[in-house]
Structure formats: structure tokens, C-alpha cells
């Protein structure tokens, strides 16, 4: 049984805009999965349909085989959502926010305190438990939303741009925290437009563009889509004519540097070095650059 199953999901808004065009994919139990895409691609719409914040137009969405519309109460109890926008009661205290939300998810009063304490301690917010939400910094509010999503120990955690507007240090500590949750068995679906975040955390990545999934694979397979290595040869003096023997490497001249690309799979690096030596150019240094997920992303979304 998959944790999340999405079949032929379409979402059209009243004004005729199509946010999702017949998308299908599934996420296995225990996976750390990313939806990657520019703003407005349809990531948040997908999440909102999963969690009951948006109505689908057609298609099926199941969470551990529970339909999010027909069995909405069972489906909701399996998920914790950290939304992109702050949606906390600004006037209530951190502790009360968690206390009531634990209740909404059916946790008896007697069990709430210990759960709240351990979560707030893990996230470094225990000292702030009696502060009103509006008195907290942006990063702390984000952590309150994370604690709120985890209060009922959901099997699926959905993170919608969880580190937007968070400082570098907090971001790194949250990444560690999410990774640990995932290792303990929580299935995590993350949306992000920070490629680094998806690259760092996720096993599989779906690239969403204009309401479609244009690629879905493991990080390594996605990188292979654009498998090439760029070699930058910096010369001692500017070059006017490109040596014909380098043309097969797609050579380009940039000031006093030559840019060459090879496919590392074909293992022709030594051939390239031979060809370079034969040109008798005076070489100052050689740099190589690997494809990043960002290159793949730009390559795919440009099509």
C-alpha cells in the first residue's frame, strides 16, 4: 500500500485557470519525496487537495487507501500539514495552540501535556510555551507550525516550503530534524523551489511545471538526464581561432578560456586531454563542473 496515491488529478478554478492537468504519481511508505517547481506550478494546489483545503475537479487521491473525500476523517488523521503561509491564531499562546490542535486530532487531554512538552523541547520552543504567537519571530512561528503538524504523530508529514524565510542555521537544523523523522518512519512530502533543499533531503523528486509533472525520478537518474561535464580550460593568452580538433567537444571560446563538454559515461576524458596537448596551447589551469539539479530543472522547464 502506498502512502500517497494520486490518479488523474485535475484542478480547474472557477475563472477557468487549470492548476493541475491530469497528474498521477504515488509515494511509497517511508519515502522522502519532493515536489519541485517554480511558484505557481501547482505544488500547493496538490497539497491543498491532499489535506482538504481545496476541492479537486476530478481524479482520485488516497492516503494509505483512504479517499480524501469519501473517507475524509480517516484520511485527515493520517496527515500533518505545515503550510506555506502562517495560519496560527496570533492571539493565543503557543501551548494552547498545540493543546487544542491535539484535541482536534482526538488526543485525550491526559496525553496532551507530555506530547506538547517533548515536541517543544525538541524544537527548542519550550521556553516560549506561554508566549503569544504574535510575539515570536518568523522562524519560531514556523517551528510552532511544525510542532502543530506533528502533535498527533502523523504517518505522513506534508511540508509546503518549510524553510521559506528561515535563516541558514535554522534551515540546517530543520533539515536534520526532518531527516530524523523520516528515518523513524514518517513519510514526508516536501514542496520547495529551493533546489538545494530537494537535493539535500529527498530520495525521489517530481518536477512540476504549469500543472504537469514533467519529470519524476530519483535524484541520480534526474541528474543523468543531463549527464555531461563541462571543462573550462583557462589559457595564458587569448585565442582567436578555435583549433578544429576541439570542435567535437562543442567548444566555445570565452575571453581567454575554452569551454568543452564531454559525456562522462563515454569515458573520453583522456582523449580530450590528448587532443588538447596536440593543439600546443599554453594552458594555465583546468576546471571541471558537474551538472546540478538546477541545470536539469532549467533544461526541463525551458522545453
Amino acid at each position: 500500500m502506498d502512502a500517497i496515491t494520486i490518479r488523474n488529478l485535475t484542478k480547474k478554478y472557477g475563472d477557468g485557470t487549470v492548476a493541475l492537468q491530469n497528474i498521477s504519481f504515488s509515494i511509497k511508505k517511508g519515502e522522502f519525496f519532493a515536489l519541485l517547481g517554480p511558484n505557481g506550478a501547482g505544488k500547493t494546489t496538490t497539497i491543498n487537495i491532499l489535506t482538504g483545503l481545496a476541492n479537486k475537479t476530478s481524479g482520485d487521491v488516497l492516503l494509505f487507501d483512504q479517499d480524501v473525500v469519501r473517507n475524509y476523517q480517516q484520511a485527515r488523521s493520517l496527515v500533518g500539514l505545515v503550510p506555506q503561509e502562517f495560519n496560527l491564531d496570533q492571539f493565543d499562546k503557543v501551548y494552547n495552540t498545540l493543546f487544542f490542535n491535539a484535541g482536534y486530532f482526538g488526543i485525550p487531554r491526559s496525553q496532551r501535556h507530555s506530547k506538547i512538552e517533548s515536541l517543544l523541547r525538541e524544537l527548542g520552543l519550550w521556553e516560549k510555551r506561554y508566549s503569544k504567537v504574535r510575539e515570536l519571530s518568523g522562524g519560531m512561528k514556523r517551528k510552532v507550525m511544525i510542532a502543530r503538524a506533528l502533535i498527533h504523530e502523523p504517518k505522513i508529514l506534508i511540508l509546503d516550503e518549510p524553510t521559506a524565510g528561515v535563516d541558514v542555521e535554522t534551515r540546517k537544523s530543520l533539515w536534520t530534524y526532518f531527516r530524523r523523522l523520516n528515518q523513524k518512519g514518517t513519510t514526508i512530502l516536501l514542496t520547495t523551489h529551493y533546489i538545494e533543499e530537494a537535493e539535500e533531503l529527498c530520495q525521489r523528486i517530481a518536477i512540476v511545471h504549469k500543472g504537469n509533472i514533467i519529470a519524476l525520478d530519483t535524484k541520480n537518474n534526474l541528474l543523468e538526464l543531463l549527464e555531461r561535464e563541462t571543462i573550462k580550460v583557462v589559457l595564458s593568452e587569448p585565442l582567436s581561432v578555435l583549433p578544429p580538433s576541439l570542435k567535437k567537444y562543442g567548444a566555445a571560446v570565452q575571453h581567454n578560456a575554452l569551454l568543452l563538454t564531454i559525456n562522462p559515461k563515454q569515458n573520453n576524458f583522456s582523449k580530450l586531454l590528448d587532443d588538447l596537448r596536440k593543439t600546443k596551447l599554453s594552458i594555465r589551469k583546468i576546471e571541471t563542473e558537474r551538472t546540478t539539479l538546477e541545470d536539469v530543472f532549467l533544461h526541463l522547464t525551458k522545453k
Partner: peptide, 12 residues
Amino acid sequence: QGQVQEYLVAPL
């Protein structure tokens, strides 16, 4: 405040 979403994502 958007906090009504707490009721909507909960199994209420």
C-alpha cells in the same frame, strides 16, 4: 488569520 484551516485539516 487563516487559522480556520486548523479545523479543515483535522478529522472534524
